[in-house]
């Protein structure tokens, strides 16, 4: 027995317990933290995201295929062929008094002729339901929660250019690997065609056709042909436009649409896309939105936005292109 009244055998026993106690406590602590993380449903250390199983995706949506990520129920899942050929790009302010200077081809020439090879473009803008299906399958982060809050058949908004590119990548893989993909589409993807955002030229050709019209339906603004000058988005394709080029819907109005073209001064040349890498990124969007005037929904109108911008009036549509 020591002077302080503690038996040495008791001391040794305590120290033995301590020797085991520390590692046991550590294991218990690891388990406690892990368990609390599971309860909280958080995995902040993970570098990959889990698919978003809690994202609401409608089981059925009239006019869209529930077995094909809610793409349109059409032979090519809503993709429309735009045949190859030249079209007039840019604006001539003599014919279109609403034209902006940035739409002028050259100082000496108001418009240019651009030859665009065949491509396929989506008849409609990408919908909330389609984007939700992507988020649910991939776990892609929804930075702006309002992106998925609109009705499922409205165009998705609040998505950055980078989100739109991610969607194209996913859809390409999904279509290429799915047995439900129409054989014509499968064949295209098998032979090197890709799902992408439209280039600025592809978009403008699809919008105005080969006859250089100002709006997809003709040269005059018509409130009954597009969603513009109103307070919110409308379901895609909800405004009938029998005169519109190639039967496409909402090329004017509803939401601005991201393109894959960086904002460059005209004359347009796709080869310029890799030029000016030392400038701050600005990407072209087209078509105007529900809250715009007739001036901004013209087929030749050009908008530019920061690729990280997520706004309630910017969405996108797709092309299948070489």
């Amino acid at each position: 027995m020591r002077a302080d009244g503690v038996a040495l055998s008791e001391t040794n026993a305590t120290e033995k317990r301590m020797r085991w106690g520390v590692p046991v406590a550590e294991v218990a602590l690891v388990a406690a933290v892990w368990f609390s993380l599971q309860l909280a449903g958080s995995d902040p250390g993970a570098t990959t995201r889990r698919p978003g199983t809690d994202v609401p995706v409608p089981a059925e949506l009239p006019g869209f295929r529930s077995d094909a990520w809610l793409l349109p129920d059409e032979p090519l899942l809503g993709f429309v062929e735009i045949p190859s050929g030249p079209f007039t790009m840019g604006s001539d302010s003599a014919e279109d008094p609403l034209a902006y200077d940035v739409e002028r081809w050259l100082a000496t020439q108001p418009q240019g002729i651009v030859d665009v090879p065949t491509f396929y473009i989506g008849r409609y803008e990408v919908t909330v339901a389609q984007y939700a299906a992507f988020v649910r399958e991939t776990g892609h982060v929804v930075v702006d929660p309002t992106a998925l809050q609109a009705p499922p058949d409205h165009p998705v908004t609040g998505v950055a250019w980078t989100d739109a590119v991610a969607y194209t990548r996913w859809l390409e893989r999904a279509l290429a690997s799915s047995a439900t993909t129409p054989s014509a589409l499968s064949e295209l993807l098998r032979t090197g065609w890709r799902v992408a955002l439209p280039s600025e030229a592809q978009w403008e050709k699809a919008a105005r056709g080969g006859d250089g019209r100002v709006y997809p339906w003709g040269d005059d603004a018509r409130q009954d042909r597009a969603v513009f000058g109103v307070r919110g988005t409308a379901p895609v394709g909800s405004v009938a436009c029998p005169e519109c080029s190639y039967g496409l819907a909402d090329m004017s109005g509803n939401v601005w649409e991201w393109t894959r073209s960086p904002y460059q001064p005209y004359p347009y040349d796709e080869a310029d896309d890799r030029a000016g890498l030392d400038t701050e990124a600005l990407w072209v969007m087209r078509g105007g939105a529900f809250n715009d005037t007739a001036q901004n929904i013209r087929a030749a109108g050009r908008g530019g936005a920061d690729p990280g911008a997520r706004r309630p009036f910017i969405g996108f549509r797709l092309v299948i292109t070489r």
Binding site: A160, T162, L277, L282
Partner: peptide, 14 residues
């Protein structure tokens, strides 16, 4: 990088 407006990164993403 693209969302931070670095043009080369946007091109690389494509």
């Amino acid at each position: 990088a693209c969302e931070l407006r670095f043009q080369a990164a946007c091109v690389n993403l494509l």
